[in-house]
Design a protein around this nucleic acid. Sequence first.
DNA 1: TCACTATTGGAATTTTTATTCCATTTTTGT
DNA 2: ACAAAAATGGAATAAAAATTCCAATAGTGA
Lengths: 281, 281
Amino acid sequence: MTNVDAGVTVLPDDYDGLRTLLLNRRDGMPKRLKQLAAFALAHPEDMAFGTVAGIAEHAGVQPSTLVRFAKSLGYDGFSHLQQIFRDRLRERFPDYRERLKGLRDAEGHHVHAASLLEGFITAAAVSLERMRDSVRLEELSRAIETLAKADTIYLLGARRVFPVIAYCAYAFGKLGMRAILIDHVGQLGPEQLATATKRDAVLAISFTPYAPVTADLAAAAAQRDVPVVAITDSAFSPLVTSADVWLEVAEADFGAFRSLSASFALAMALAVGTAEKRAEG
Amino acid sequence: MTNVDAGVTVLPDDYDGLRTLLLNRRDGMPKRLKQLAAFALAHPEDMAFGTVAGIAEHAGVQPSTLVRFAKSLGYDGFSHLQQIFRDRLRERFPDYRERLKGLRDAEGHHVHAASLLEGFITAAAVSLERMRDSVRLEELSRAIETLAKADTIYLLGARRVFPVIAYCAYAFGKLGMRAILIDHVGQLGPEQLATATKRDAVLAISFTPYAPVTADLAAAAAQRDVPVVAITDSAFSPLVTSADVWLEVAEADFGAFRSLSASFALAMALAVGTAEKRAEG
DNA sequence: TCACTATTGGAATTTTTATTCCATTTTTGT
DNA sequence: ACAAAAATGGAATAAAAATTCCAATAGTGA
């Protein structure tokens, strides 16, 4: 059987579309299917996680009815329908994820400029959205307090995240705070950091694969009781053990390149927040 | 019956508890299990929805290792462990409401940190959206062609946009293209750029207020017939007169700080596009 | 270096889960 | 009220997934 479905509306692939479809079709549906439509909209989480048998029991129908329900809407089967409910929970912007996936699939063959740009824009947007939910505000506040108390802020970051830390140097400077960029020129990182005391603070950033210098220097500073604020991408980062406060940022990637947008936004919030904190007290 | 369970620590049944458990055990774990622990915390959604085979592939381990991982933590098997990740997503919406409520109740400084972060996130997102429509694709293609023909790419950018150009140095290098970062150390910019010929190219970035060095060095290069590709924010930029191709990016700002997200996305697209162009021809 | 133990990879097996099929019941139109 | 069509329930089957097991490998201490 084809899914051309007599020229009727296209099969929805997101939750909102499905919802509309169900509401429209509701009146013409037989009893059990209508019952399922109501159940699905009332318990989308169950639809996302449950098994056919479990949902069927919960909704008061037979397992086969669930499969019929999915097919009557035009899906391949229950699993196909369930995917829509799962996508809804997975990301708050499933369309972004789909778009990224689509673009990534095209990779390897010929990707033209437009889709490249689109890919990087989307990766950046996903990173930002994700951070909106994932950053712990208490931690952010603590990070700001730590930096605000510091006399001088030492900025630590290498390779891929060096741009972020370089920007911090610009921002802190512009906001009138003393900040030193540890650029590790001539391998002089340890010496650049040598003057840091417990009255100062280190702001360190590192993402997988963690540059050893960053972890080493942060550890050395922590050893000497210099407060360390870290931005990193997982609780397993070597920075975590050295850090007094750490903030988690998971950047999305496109192809081999990971976005830095979320890190930048977070760094800017840290810088301005710290400046305002100082102005207050 | 107590839940102390033979002196072992209690088996966590929520995500936060699991997270703590993983962090504590991390050091004593064998390689593959540690790898999985990191993966689980980095991709909780995948853990919630994926199948053993799918997750195993994504995490780079064998299916059996996943089951072993779950058991080594004390769970019955993978399915039992997965339940914890699913529960977390189930409660995500209440969780979110909780957060908002907490935000409202919390002391002023949390709210403040939140709105700062929100502001920078929004500025970045707006910049990205805006660029989606405003970039001229023909110009982007021309820029890519120009850079692809170059022997060596000289990277020019100062002050606020220095991070972007620093990132370009990283990206071009990683893609196997010869690129020189003109960092202007010791005011040696002119000397760093002196070896550029018409067989090379300059990639210059500058936004208001245009740093004079960037415009001057770009002009000097153009004078010697070195092709110049520019990224800037208006047709009135001093870079435009020197540039063979130029791309317009208008970044949004929040407070005194302007986003760099769009510029980064564009720079990444340029870098990867150039690499692919070279691979083709 | 050698034996011993812990860890890992991969195929085989078991269990769970989705799907199909068909007999039975309900609805619909005349 | 009757025949035809549609819908439903439930068991049978197929598919997919989790788990187990064992051989191969890496790691460790004598």
